[in-house]
């Protein structure tokens, strides 16, 4: 066991876990943040995507022992961060996904939203090609990509439907 000192969604969390555990395992099974999904568990699907210092990263292939110096953002962190910044309602990207019906089963959605958040933080007005490329590491088993892309466009416009 090793005590990890992780910076998760703006909080510093001290958590004891086996030294060889992945970040995803520590998030889900020690901290209780189950929003990051355990899909293929080997880097193919993107369901476990979290942001490390704002950069989309796969938690299933990251050792907890190597991310202690990074600011970790999971899907659970978006709404509190939005509210702390004076926002109302849901996080704008989450809201856009909701309004566009950009999900069927929802399993890919946390990863999709975090990839979209990172894109929009870097590039507030992406082209449709840039949106597709930025989300190309996230697989949707229900193949609901069209509405997902529409949601990112809507979030970029910042309009309320």
């Amino acid at each position: 066991m090793r005590v990890f000192r992780l910076q998760v969604n703006g909080d510093t969390v001290e958590v004891a876990a086996p030294e060889h555990w992945t970040l995803l395992e520590v998030l889900r099974y020690k901290i209780g943040l189950t929003g990051s999904k355990q899909g293929c568990d080997k880097g193919d699907c993107g369901a476990c995507t979290v942001l490390l210092d704002g950069v989309p990263t796969l938690a299933c292939l990251s050792l907890a022992a190597t991310v202690e110096t990074s600011a970790i953002t999971t899907i659970e962190g978006l709404l509190p961060a939005h509210r702390a910044n004076g926002g109302e309602g849901a996080d704008p990207v989450q809201d856009a996904f909701d309004r566009c019906g950009a999900l069927q089963c929802g399993f890919c959605q946390p990863g999709m939203i975090l990839s979209a958040k990172a894109l929009l933080a870097k590039n507030p007005n992406p082209t449709s090609q840039e949106i597709k490329q930025s989300l190309s590491g996230n697989l949707c088993r229900c193949t609901g990509y069209t509405q997902i892309y529409e949601a990112v466009v809507l979030a970029a416009k910042g309009e309320q439907v």
């Binding site: 060889h20 080997k42 880097g43 299933c60 292939l61 050792l63 022992a65 190597t66």
Partner: peptide, 26 residues
């Protein structure tokens, strides 16, 4: 040695490598 982990970690999950120690280079 562990660099980005995108090859070694899945390979260890498949038990293609079972080291006793991982030296992370970050």
């Amino acid at each position: 040695f562990l660099a980005g982990g995108t090859d070694l970690n899945p390979n260890m999950k498949h038990r293609l490598f079972t080291p006793e120690r991982v030296v992370a280079l970050g």
